[in-house]
Computed example of a mutant assay.
Amino acid sequence: MVVTGFTCATDATINGPVTVRAGAALVTTRTTINGPVTTTGAAGILLADSTINGPVRIANTTDAISLIDVTTAGPVHLSANTTGTDTPLLADNTIRGPLSCTGNNPTPSNLGIANTVHGPRTAQCAAL
């Protein structure tokens, strides 16, 4: 559980769920998480070149959100994130489940780098 501050995981394996609490931030690079990732009110989330063996739910984040070259074994849902001028970025991911985005400001983008989604893409993420 990430309760406060800024937590980084590089070349790591994390077994069990990862929860990021309000005001905390998480960065992963080349990391495997065996369980769900859930954030509520996080200061920021960066998941890069990582594998998530479970669903990803990011809600009410107040700063940057990036999922880049991530493989998830479950749905990905972004909701009610207000990230100022930092557009939530979802690019070059493989999502083995649905991708849904609702109520995010600004609307998520893939910067023209397609995601592979094995499920429906809905709402703000319909074109990603």
Rank of each mutant, 00 (worst) to 15 (best):
T7K: 04
T7N: 05
T7F: 05
T7C: 07
C8H: 04
C8M: 03
C8D: 04
C8N: 05
C8P: 01
A9P: 11
A9M: 14
A9I: 09
T10H: 08
T10I: 14
T10L: 09
T10G: 07
D11Q: 10
D11H: 10
D11R: 12
D11W: 08
A12H: 05
A12F: 05
A12M: 10
A12G: 07
A12L: 06
A12Q: 09
A12N: 11
T13C: 00
T13W: 00
T13N: 03
T13D: 01
I14H: 12
I14M: 13
I14F: 08
I14G: 09
N15K: 09
N15D: 07
N15L: 05
N15V: 11
G16Q: 04
G16M: 06
G16D: 04
G16F: 02
G16P: 03
G16H: 06
G16E: 06
P17C: 03
P17W: 11
P17Y: 13
P17Q: 14
V18L: 13
V18T: 12
V18R: 00
V18P: 00
T19I: 14
T19Q: 14
T19V: 12
T19A: 12
V20W: 02
V20F: 04
R21F: 05
R21G: 01
R21W: 02
A22Y: 06
A22R: 10
G23T: 06
G23Y: 03
G23S: 06
G23L: 09
A24T: 00
A25K: 08
A25V: 03
A25P: 00
A25H: 03
A25S: 15
L26S: 09
L26W: 07
L26N: 05
L26M: 07
L26C: 06
L26P: 08
V27P: 00
T28K: 03
T28F: 00
T28C: 12
T28H: 01
T29C: 12
T29V: 15
R30A: 10
R30D: 12
R30W: 02
R30S: 12
R30P: 01
R30N: 12
R30F: 10
R30M: 07
T31F: 01
T31K: 05
T31I: 04
T31M: 02
T32Y: 02
T32P: 03
I33D: 15
I33Y: 13
N34H: 07
G35V: 02
G35F: 06
P36M: 13
P36C: 13
P36Y: 15
V37M: 12
V37Y: 10
V37I: 15
V37S: 09
V37F: 15
V37T: 09
T38L: 14
T38P: 04
T38H: 13
T38C: 03
T38W: 04
